[in-house]
Amino acid sequence: MSERTIRLEVLRYRPEQEDEPTWQAYDVPCREEWVVLDALNYVKDHLDGTVSYRWSCHMAVCGSCGMRVNDEPALACKAFLRDYPDHIRVAPLDHFPVERDLIIDQDRFMESLSAVKSWLIPAAQPSEGGEYRQTQSELARFRQYSMCINCLLCYSACPQVGLNEGYLGPAALALAHRYNEDSRDGGRLQRNPATASNEGVWECTFVGECSEVCPKHVDPAGAIQQMKLASSLDWLLRPFRKREDDS
């Protein structure tokens, strides 16, 4: 049962007592197998109950514990202490308003999800048995993009999210692509006013950091480039479509 003392510095923000975030350090006795989330939970349980952060599953599927660990967007439950030095700084995800400590205001993302209509818009009703039928290769076209856990690490990594307030962002666009590529879906043209707008795929300059930090290997950057091509084709063919097909 080996222990290691980690100096965990947390970027605190308490709106009722300060205008700007400030660092606060805690010395945490850690077990070898711990992740950053365990160290944070130790702080909250034993050292400072006021530290605020989101977490849930502790196994990298819920997407709640996204934060910057030593300036890299990461899931706190997936950041193993053995991969870090003795001094670890945790800060909230970049490019979002900070409500308190490590808790960010996610409204921008929720609005983006609505804007891109990130739900199935069926192309046709299911077959007589009541199920949609889909082959393995049809599934393969979009499965990767369905792995998104909405953790927002990609938003923190993407400079265009920071530079452009209205930009829909990597995850929302990748999710739109997930539905556009789903053989059961017929809503691409309905999504275009959002995804193919100036605040959609066209704000992306393929920096690629979003895909680098994604814990689920979704590759939103790739999704967006594929959508640029698809949108361009839709744009070229627009004069030949019936008016009512485009929303």
Binding site: A115, P193, A194, N198, W202, W235, D246
Partner: peptide, 15 residues
């Protein structure tokens, strides 16, 4: 939001 005309400059960029 509406569909952008960016393809008019992006397609030459890509090509």
């Amino acid at each position: 939001m509406a569909m952008s005309n960016k393809p008019v400059v992006w397609l030459p960029f890509a090509a």
